[in-house]
Design a protein around this nucleic acid. Structure first.
Lengths: 294, 294
DNA sequence: TTGACATAAACTCAGATGGAGAATAAGTCA
DNA sequence: TGACTTATTCTCCATCTGAGTTTATGTCAA
């Protein structure tokens, strides 16, 4: 049974947003995600991760969610040299924090996640780099019809719409085409940390659509445009202003503070705060089945 | 670093549906979910699980998805006796299979998942057992307003609608109220397997709403009512017939085979088959943000 | 002081979607 | 042949959504 013992490590995708830029906590000068061993003293995986993240950043982690557990032998750093090595299991977590003063050991730094995935930021239109990237991907696809369709679908070619949720699938395709180390196609990371980061971004982009996680990243009081810019930063796309506002107040998640913000550059905006109470009680639908009420 | 070594085990929530009853593979006469160690010979977690599940059941697993990784010290079987014990990590997977002929060692048996969570089946109306159960839960809540609201919300009391997605949250509440071992409130399982099963059901119920996983459980050809009954079995609620049909053909996921089924008891029904090709290419939305097209 | 500029907030309107159920078709079985 | 059962197609209407337009209220520079 000792052959089944493994080294378990906790990896954090820790996200904060400042100046409309989504940032992720890194160590080793932006080369790796913070990670630490799961120790006997930790009561649960969550509390283990929470403990050392807070010691690293000095900040409380508002929101913490398990992402995925990775153990692919061929994608870890120290792979393939022998049979009798210790197995590595990485348990990834997504954490959201409000501010970004990093005070820990290990040279913590915040980096925009678009450094690692530059093709994911469509806020100012389709990034130029996508031209070269999709050319290389289509080269790789060649005559292979299925591959070609996958490229079109994932990268919004041939009349298909850009779908911001497919971060991980796009990265996996690039990896499959062996383009992930090409200069200019995003910054690299140690081991498979870039994949774990892609997993985190994917989860967050999906989640903001049906669960009010954005507020974990917002300050106590904010304007509606602040909220929109935050959402746009995460999703990497622009949103329709008045429809965004309508959606927000249909959900009933925020209330006016009574104060105004005059830092808008135009007409002062009302300030709002989050009302966490309602979350549990409302259904916050998402997709539904066609129920029958009888 | 040896204090960080852990015993990693793979646990499967393996689901099949027969006779409109969703069933889960168990061992030990229905007392436990099948599980096995993650071994050095396994290339990935997925392939490790797939390998031994197929050897246990003799069936190919169509769909396999990671659920969650558990390591709570206080909820595992062998907890709390000493400090120097080996840490257990359980990685749960959800698998879907088409048929249920179990041929493996370890006395594999299929059990309806409603044996373990009898309050989750609302296909024939609200189960009687919910009366007693919610009474006990409200006793536990007492004057605690937050608890009381949680009970109302999760169990559809006080005018709230039943939400079939909250399987895990309901089980966690019952566990918190220490009612999980009360006779009549569902069959128990070893260790925290019942919680893992709840996690699997939760995931599946959520997923059928925005991704066509149901077809992994359907035979090659089926009628629209078959498909509806399957969905109802999983969701534990009744659906509106014509609206269900409309939703299905909006999604464009199936096509007529040309054959008819005369086993309906009434007018013969057209037979359909799944068209997997479309899945990738369509958006299959779910929740959306209010995009701005410019 | 005034007008250009910028953003806020409210309102409009047509087309799509979703819930509920009626109407019609085509089998089986007594 | 008529009762019964299920299949399949429609209809109706309320609500939601996408895409603006309109009006309000600040700042700032000439």
């Amino acid at each position: 049974m000792s052959e089944s013992l493994a080294y378990a490590e906790l990896i954090a995708v820790l996200v904060a947003v400042t100046d409309n830029e989504p940032r992720v906590m890194t160590i080793d000068a932006g080369e790796a995600l913070p990670s630490g061993p799961f120790e006997t003293s930790h009561r649960t995986l969550q509390s283990g991760l929470r403990a050392w993240v807070e010691s690293q950043t000095g900040h409380p982690v508002g929101y913490l969610e398990q992402l995925y557990t990775f153990a692919d032998r061929d994608r870890a750093l120290d792979a393939g040299t022998g049979a009798a090595q210790t197995r590595h299991i990485s348990i990834g977590y997504l954490g959201l924090v409000r501010e970004q003063v990093a005070l820990g050991a290990g040279r913590p730094e915040w980096h925009s996640w678009y450094e690692y995935f530059p093709w994911e930021d469509h806020r100012d239109g389709r990034p130029d780099l996508l031209t070269g990237l999709s050319e290389r991907l289509l080269d790789w696809a060649g005559d292979h019809e299925v591959r070609r369709q996958r490229v079109d679908f994932l990268f919004g070619l041939n009349g298909q719409l850009w779908n911001e949720d497919l971060v991980l699938q796009r990265y996996e395709l690039i990896y499959e085409a062996e383009l992930e180390k090409v200069a200019g196609f995003g910054r690299q990371m140690a081991s498979d940390h870039r994949r774990i980061l892609a997993t985190g971004i994917t989860r967050l982009r999906a989640k903001i659509k049906y669960y009010p996680v954005v507020f974990e990243l917002m300050p106590d009081s904010f304007t509606l445009l602040d909220l929109q810019r935050m959402t746009e930063a995460l999703a990497g796309v622009r949103l329709h202003k008045s429809n965004f506002r309508r959606q927000i107040d249909q959900q009933n998640l925020i209330e006016e503070t009574g104060e105004m913000s005059s830092e808008t550059g135009g007409r002062p905006a009302k300030l709002f705060r989050y009302r966490p109470a309602v979350v549990e009680a409302s259904s916050l639908s998402g997709a539904r089945l066609p129920y029958s009420r009888h």
